[in-house]
Design a protein around this nucleic acid. Sequence first.
DNA 1: AGTGTATCCTGCAGGC
DNA 2: TGCCTGCAGGATACAC
Length: 311
Amino acid sequence: MPELPEAETIVRGLRPAVIGQRIRRVEVLHEDVLREPKAAFARKLHDALVVAVGRRAKNVLLRLEDRRVLAVNLGMTGRLLPFSGAPDGAARPGHPAVRFRFESGGVLIFDDTRRFGTVECLTDAEWRERSERMGPEPLARSYTASRLHADLARSRAPVRSWLLDQRRIAGIGNIYANEALYLAGVHPRRPARSVTADEAARLHRSIRRVLRGAIRAGGTTIRDYRTAEGGVGEYVRRLLVYGRDAEPCARCGDLVRRLVFGNRSAFYCPTCQPYGARSPRPADGRSTSERAASGPSAGAKGAMRGRGGRA
DNA sequence: AGTGTATCCTGCAGGC
DNA sequence: TGCCTGCAGGATACAC
């Protein structure tokens, strides 16, 4: 999906288009992105005024009157596309799921090819309960390296799986987890609690650096993600390991490898991210799930189709 | 507590 | 050309 930087980019682009707009009508074209019957959902939103737009983790939040929240989780392929009136040719909705029609004549479309995304209208209390179940925001001032280290110490999960767990840290997905681990020199399969204080400090820095850099670049477009203005995310050109199976590491020239665990691909450089000081990779990792460096995966190559060159 | 697997869904690339 | 397989930025639920 859209991870934290993509959600943040959408939020920034959406603000001028939707703040101050009053929803006149809601049209649900695919009910499976809702968590309640469409009639009830549409009734809640009738005549609601959008007062602010924000983000929590990977969720885009349209704040309404009465402290209610329209919470949008973009899933893998969700997009929020505002149109002021006449359709311009930027990013045409190919799979509209929900259309919000404003009093002004403008329209906001939640478009989602795979429909893994969700759109919910929550009360202040419902939203707060939801938010409390999510981990800390990695870009918050209060999120320190020592906090990260202390939290990592409580889990035996592989550190890449740990970073993807929204209850532990919010907003990180597979792309930025892999990039941050690469920059920190930490093998993705290392048990979270084996990460030392020094490594946690490096990881803390690299997480922030990657997320901030991606926000500045407008996110990462592999295929479906678009900014609210319909543009692509340029961070795709700065990716150092994600999707680069069998390509040379930018730092040492060794070949980037792909591992599969936790049902997701992990990309790493075996030289820059040794599993341990003594054994360069998990003792049993190679025979089970590690792919030969000479066999780039069809899926990873396919996912990276059409992107630009290395930065 | 973790892992592997399956589920929701569509589109696309690669192999044959 | 077509058919089949596997993969994809996410989240969750299940059995082991």
